[in-house]
Design a protein around this nucleic acid. Structure first.
Lengths: 205, 205
DNA sequence: CCGGCCATCCCTGAAAAATGGGATATTTAT
DNA sequence: ATAAATATCCCATTTTTCAGGGATGGCCGG
């Protein structure tokens, strides 16, 4: 029984790399790829892979959100998160959203195969680095911000005023103001400048 | 005459992807890879590729610094920068340090081949996205800021107000305000939030 | 020596953000 | 089911920023 594998990643070279790593594996059936969250969801309406390898950082909807949706709609599909070295901070979010495993993009073929076969059995696979990062992070540095707050944060960083943000998100500027206040509190910053700086340092933007 | 290609990237999957993309190309001789700057330099002591595909973001020495060293020691080697979508701000630094080309990691095989063959002839190749980003940055952007302006910029990013900055630098807050205004003009940003974001993206902070 | 750049200082008025309250519906989690 | 979290809205005051001006002395390179 082959394991049906699908991949969602916005980097063509990574897709190609994984395909190359898996193409000679007898236990793997390569189903194809999507380069963004929307394509992935569209694909899932008509196909059912066993395992999805999913990049965390994609333009548009992130892998973290995509993972959540996928697990809600298709709980039988196992998700393996993929990320680069300096995005380890998102590992726990990915796992919270139902991912079954996590490998870094510099994983070897052995690691990748082990991850796929492990999660295909319904178990959890974490690469050594990922497991390490999971332990290390979770410290107080990284504030837990809500989806909405993140949207607001990004628009603030783009230089929009509260009113412009309000128009963009179809909410009142007073609401934007509240989100902004909460962001300042959560990041323990005293104004917009340090808020943006801190958020960027934590790679949240 | 085959083009000898070497790659330096810390992501095994990207290496594998590129290898897969190039393996059937008759004009390409795959020399191997390094996963960090040090290995790359060690390799170059005994081998001479025509083209090095080089990731920008690597643990330890960055591709930007590596590029500089490589071009100083081996000016006949052509370097092609590789990066993801959200690192476009480093393109110009890479080009300043002697890179001959730049492609994003979601490039197609055609783009990659075109890049390699173009730079192997000593010409410059920029992917459309890279060229676009470069124009955007070089023309109005990458502001030349003075020492004092940079000091002020850093303190702004730390969240200090004009008055606090003034006290710290022993100048009047009106002066700080002028520096701030000039920074906004030079960065073509409309407020502090986008100023900080832009400055961080350009790694000026 | 002079012109340009830099750093410094000042003014004003409008716009926006920060601060610190309070309040309610909806979702999510336990 | 109930508590917690989230998203929403409102107000009033103070501080800060934004966007125009203009002005002075110092320093460096042509």
């Amino acid at each position: 029984m082959k394991t049906k594998v699908f991949i969602t990643d916005d980097h063509y070279m990574v897709i190609e790399g994984i395909r190359s790593l898996l193409q000679n594996e007898k236990e793997i059936e390569w189903m194809g790829h999507a380069s963004n969250a929307e394509s992935c969801l569209a694909y899932l309406q008509t196909h059912q892979p066993d395992v999805i390898l999913m990049d965390i950082n994609m333009p548009g909807m992130s892998g973290i959100d995509l993972c959540k949706i996928v697990k809600e709609k298709y709980p039988q599909v196992f998700v393996v998160g993929l990320s680069t070295f300096n995005q380890q901070s998102f590992i726990h979010k990915m796992m919270d959203n139902g991912a079954s495993g996590y490998v870094l993009k510099n994983a070897t073929q052995q690691e990748l195969m082990e991850a796929i076969s492990t999660v295909a059995k319904g178990k959890t696979y974490l690469s050594d680095e990922a497991a390490f990062a999971l332990k290390k992070i979770e410290t107080p540095g990284m504030p837990l911000i809500t989806r909405r707050e993140k949207e607001v944060l990004e628009l603030i960083a783009e230089g929009l005023t509260n009113i412009e943000i309000a128009e963009k998100l179809f909410i009142s500027s007073a609401t934007v103001d509240t989100h902004r206040k909460n962001l300042l509190i959560k990041f323990q910053t005293k104004n917009t400048a340090s808020l943006v700086r801190t958020a960027m340092q934590l790679q949240l933007i």
